[in-house]
Amino acid sequence: MGFLKALAVAGFIGLSAAATTSAMAQENYPSQPVTLIITFAPGGGNDVVGRMFADKIGPALGQPIVVENRAGGGGTTGAAHAAKQKPDGYTILMANGASHLIGPVLFPDVGYDPVKSFDHAGLLGEQYVLLVVNAKSKYQSFKDLVDEARTSERGIKYGLASAASINTVFANRMTKTTGARFAPVIYNGGAPALTALAGGEIEVMISAYSEAAPHIQSGAVRPIAISSTKRIGALPDVPTFAELGYEALNMRNWYGIETPAGTPKEVIGKLNEAIRKAGSDPELIQKLNQIGFVPTPTTPEDYASFLAEQVATWRTEVEAIKPGK
């Protein structure tokens, strides 16, 4: 009896010890560096924003953030990799429209569900679609553009950095909403498209402030309108589409932090806290402002419902850019 009792006690202690260590693991989170997966190549807009945040989220968590770029498949390769990792909070993903709204619709075989395969730690923030024209262009306002596109026989051609991005969806929405004749000229990335705009090959381009900023500052390129709900700090004189009467053209290009599905609540909580702390850091806000990115802190719950709503509403619009045959 003594032996059995001892065994039972030992078993109990063992079990509770195991329970404590797993609880401890969550309580101690993070006890080692956290890997942040960025789904685009280093140097691009996604990478820049991700690294800026990583610099601030790290200290807020008390562990360094190691950035790992897993580019490919229009953002889906990195997201698919992240979805397969251990849900312990040590691998986190920077999600965006490309990996969560567009990729999974274009390629049904990506191997993850944008909502169910992840837990959603929080939004980082958003940037907006910016309509720019060559500085020498005769178009002074969005109205000029729409009028010309409605009346002229050939319509207006605009440059686009990709055939499947947030900006592509925006372009289709713009054509539909205005009922005018706009036709895309697709480029292989933002850099060649902007070169073409600055060189005058195209007169109009659908871009983002982060891309167009140097050319706006040098005076080669002129911003016409922006897709934010209210004017942004970096471009106080540029009207929003909503101001101009096109409410439907409000569009945000958001970035958020996700973890593989099944991550403990405590870990999500800690991550969310760190994201929010980073997003309110004045130095970071100032740097982000320079590239037209606005931090938008949320709770995990708000982010999750926001994401689910986005995935549902975007599906039809993304189906429209899917290649035929």
Partner: peptide, 15 residues
């Protein structure tokens, strides 16, 4: 290199 500059808060360009 452009990315590294931007992370440091310098927007590369003619300015």
């Amino acid at each position: 290199m452009a990315g590294a500059l931007m992370i440091q808060g310098i927007v590369p360009g003619p300015q």
